[in-house]
Every structure is written in structure tokens, then in C-alpha cells.
Simulated assay, not measured.
Amino acid sequence: MSSDARQGIQSVEVAMEVLTALEEARRPVSLSTLAKLADLQPSKVHRYLVSLVRAGLAAQEKGSGLYTLGSAVRRLGIEALRRVDEASIASQHAVELRDRTQHTVSLSTWSDAGPTLIRWDYGAYPLPIAVRVGSVLPLADSSVGRVCLAHLPQAITMPVLKGQQRRGETRTYTDSELAELTDDVRRTGVSVTTGAIIPGLAVIASPVFGPGNGLALVLGMALPSRELTASLTRRLSDDIVKTSTIVTRDLGGQVRHQTAADPP
């Protein structure tokens, strides 16, 4: 291949800059506004828009004259979402997190029974627990469960929570205590529990959001509680939030929290 072929086609890259600016605008915009967002001259943006509109990748509203994404982009987006394998994408990053920290990592998703483990990758530290994929976790007592309580609608979580409480599978909190727990998860992006389910086990969990910005998965990290100092908690919390943020963006979701290191 020639050097030019390997370098790509510059005009296509510029067209993508225009489309990216249209996407980042989150609404129909004028030519001048789009040019500012793309950091390009308006005359240059207009030439690209003519071709993008012809291809259906952009559209111009008849009444206002504002530009927005076209129907072809919507079709591409729908097909891209159809092909997303959330667990597969997240698993790649989860294993990297395990290798980087040497601590056990997990992935969980919501099912009719509650938060359910779908992946468990052991780290270098022995844990006081034998885990089976498919296990359902207690909502109020587990880090994973608290993430679900914080980011899923109560209409979904409350019936499961009440059922677990009735069967003695999770403890009962007052409304104010539960609100404090979930508010903290939403603010920091993590839930940290020590010995809540199994004595000697500490777990840090963080949400992963998917298309439509709903909770898709929960990324967890388990380690012996004796290892979890205050400084290590901060470092691992920051690491797991950064990883869950990367996965969220890969899935097309939107991050809802600050990083763990950010001030409230």
C-alpha cells in the first residue's frame, strides 16, 4: 500500500469532525455554531454539509434552517446498538483491572431475582468465599446491590428488596438510612462494604451505564478486608470508577457521577 493509503483520506476525517460536532451539540444548530464546535471555517463546514445531507448523514430543518443528524446516522446507530455485547466489552476491561490491581473482579447484571453475578475472575489474594456465577446478591447488604438500588427505578428494586427482607436475605434499613447509602453511591460512583455479607471480605462496586443511560452492569472488586486500608480504598475506588467510566463510554452510555477522587 502507498503511504497516502495508509494515512487515510483527510476529507473523510474532516467529515467525521463535522458529524461529531453535530452529535456533541445535542440539538439542531446553525452553521455558525456548528463551525465553532468543529473548529472549522463556516464555508468549509457548509461544503461538507452539502455532501453529508445528500448522503443522509446530516439533515437541514426546513423551517429553521438548522442542521442536525440525518436518518442514515440513526440507522447506523440502531444497528451499532444491536451489535453491542455489553458483557463481552466490559469483560475485557474487567480482566485488565484484575491484572493491574491483582484483586478479584466481577460483573453483575440485574435479573428478576435481583443483582446476579455473570462473571468472576479471581485475583492473587485468597478470599473467604466460594463464588458461583449466577448467584443472586443481597440488595441492601452488598456493594453490587447498593449500586442497583442507587441507579435503578424503585418500581423495579423495591419488590425484590422487600422479598429479600421477608426471607431474611438482606437487612432492613430505614428510609433515611437507605437514602443516605444510595445518595453516596450516586455522588461518588462507588459502593464500599466490609464484612457486610462474609466476614473478612471487602467489596468495591461501580455502575456501568449502557445505551439509553440505564444501568447495564455493575463492576465489582473483592479483596480480603484486612488489606483494605484507607489509602488503598481511595486508590482502588478511583481505579474502578475510571474503568467503569471507560466501559460506559464504550457502550454508548453517559456517566452520571463524579470520579471517586472528586470532592462532593
Rank of each mutant, 00 (worst) to 15 (best):
D4E: 15
D4T: 11
D4F: 11
A5M: 15
A5K: 14
R6E: 01
R6P: 02
Q7G: 10
Q7D: 12
Q7K: 13
Q7A: 13
G8F: 00
I9V: 02
I9R: 02
Q10I: 15
Q10F: 10
Q10K: 10
Q10H: 14
S11G: 08
V12I: 14
V12C: 12
E13R: 07
A15L: 06
A15N: 09
A15D: 08
A15P: 06
M16T: 14
M16A: 07
M16L: 09
M16F: 11
E17S: 08
E17D: 11
V18K: 01
L19I: 09
L19T: 09
L19G: 07
L19D: 05
L19F: 11
T20W: 15
T20P: 07
T20Y: 14
T20R: 13
A21M: 04
A21R: 03
A21W: 04
L22T: 01
L22F: 02
L22M: 01
E23D: 12
E23K: 12
E23V: 10
E24C: 03
E24W: 06
A25P: 02
A25R: 01
R26H: 13
R26P: 15
R26D: 15
R26M: 09
R27N: 05
R27Q: 09
R27K: 08
R27W: 08
R27C: 05
P28R: 00
P28L: 02
P28N: 03
V29L: 02
V29Y: 06
V29A: 01
V29P: 00
S30R: 05
L31D: 06
L31C: 04
L31E: 05
L31W: 05
L31G: 03
L31I: 03
S32W: 07
S32E: 10
S32I: 10
S32K: 12
T33W: 10
T33G: 10
T33S: 13
L34C: 03
L34G: 01
L34I: 07
L34F: 05
A35Q: 07
A35R: 07
A35F: 07
A35C: 07
K36P: 12
K36D: 15
K36E: 15
K36F: 12
L37G: 05
L37K: 06
L37A: 05
A38R: 01
A38S: 04
D39V: 03
D39L: 09
D39F: 08
D39H: 09
D39M: 07
Q41H: 15
Q41T: 12
Q41I: 14
Q41P: 14
P42V: 00
P42E: 01
P42W: 00
S43C: 08
K44T: 15
K44R: 14
K44G: 14
K44Q: 13
K44I: 15
K44V: 15
V45K: 00
V45N: 00
V45C: 00
H46Q: 10
H46M: 09
R47Q: 14
R47S: 12
R47W: 12
Y48E: 11
Y48W: 11
L49S: 02
L49K: 04
L49G: 04
L49T: 00
L49M: 05
L49N: 04
V50C: 13
V50T: 05
S51M: 11
S51Y: 10
S51I: 11
S51L: 10
L52C: 04
L52F: 04
L52G: 05
V53T: 05
V53S: 08
V53P: 08
V53Q: 12
